[in-house]
Design a protein around this nucleic acid. Structure first.
Lengths: 198, 198
DNA sequence: TCCATTTTATGATTAAAATCATAAAACGAG
DNA sequence: CTCGTTTTATGATTTTAATCATAAAATGGA
């Protein structure tokens, strides 16, 4: 996360997106740095039969889409506003200048990429070698640490739909629903009027 | 990749590992920066029934294990020498000092992490939403660009075993063997005395 | 407040890759 | 050169999650 003052110094602009708006598209060449002011953004892929895989979900203060920007490669996924969202947008040249002139920001970027790489490493191993229950629990436990789940008297509220959990773990909705029920029976989760708590 | 001169200036040491030696272990806290001089290193996880998932394979000049180092988190995977390997090892404090005093190195690190994140994004989507043939082909095509596959008169030699391809794509050996045969029949690959060419 | 859409839910069936079994070929350390 | 290990190979069987079908509950916009 880069401070507002610094971004403004390098000529950032604000842009608003409505719910379900496409912010950037798979296959396009990157040209800007994106940082969320408010709202929620998901990056995801669709395969040939329309099945979705969610790469990540991003909130206030988080940036997204940097890897292809640094590599001059096409975006490997789409970015879509999950709800009405405001975003800071900075042209690549300005962004690179900002980095050069502010070395401490580079360290921040490194830490952010490291965090995302760590998540992907954990989930990649989960998705390819573990059963549904393990996958879902790992995602939830990761989410408690890194997505913005709120704690209340019942525990952490996992504010993902069953479909989203499926799209993040590579499982189908029905499988997620059954898996969550099984996890509840084992006492790993609570389901209180359809909402999942951990 | 950080230059030898710079590493030496900050007190790097060399260390040798024999084939199959464990270089670093899942669950341990990182304390050093690792950069390969010669040889080959794989980072991988094992699930409860001993099934392996290979996170990545690294060669000369490449570094590995930085994300947990930057985050002060436990290694999410093991690093093992695939063959006899020499590695530069630099203590974390020295490495961080090197970064602070050489901002251009940060950009290199960023590009490297971006590259690895890009690979993981592509493979994560493949593994969770595509069929075996698509997964294997994507891995091979990525490998041509980023692993060190050599081109000869038959095309690029994919110097991975069927087992390695399985461990990188989340498929079992038998499935990889049958998939590769199917891809050969479709003309996507060549198999010349058991070796795969693309 | 009403209605269309989304989310959660459950049962039956299917398909696809994993598993199991077995073996030949190739490789590599001594 | 030899022998144990690894890699490639193939067929039969099983398992597990996907798929298909259907519906109730909840949500949200008009």
């Amino acid at each position: 996360m880069i401070t507002v003052e610094l971004l403004e110094k390098y000529g950032v602009i604000k842009k608003s997106f409505d719910k379900n708006d496409i912010i950037l598209e798979e296959g396009n060449l990157p040209s800007h740095y994106y940082q969320i002011i408010s709202g929620e953004v998901k990056m995801s892929n669709y395969n040939d039969d329309g099945r979705e895989f969610i790469q990540g979900i991003f909130y206030n203060g988080q940036s997204f889409g940097e890897p292809p920007l640094f590599l001059n490669q096409n975006y490997p996924a789409n970015a879509i506003a999950v709800e009405n969202t405001e975003i800071f947008i900075l042209p690549k040249e300005n962004f690179m200048k900002l980095l050069e002139e502010n070395p401490k920001v580079s360290i921040k970027i490194i830490e952010n990429l490291a965090q995302r790489l760590y998540y992907k490493s954990v989930m990649a191993a989960e998705i390819s070698t573990h059963e549904p229950e393990h996958r879902v629990l790992k995602l939830i436990d990761h989410g408690i640490a890194y997505f913005n789940f709120q704690k209340d008297k019942n525990g952490y509220l996992i504010n993902f739909t069953r479909q989203q959990i499926g799209d993040l773990t590579g499982l189908r909705v029905e499988t997620v629903i059954r898996t969550i029920k099984a996890l509840e029976k084992k006492g790993e989760l609570k389901i209180i009027n359809r909402k999942v708590y951990r």
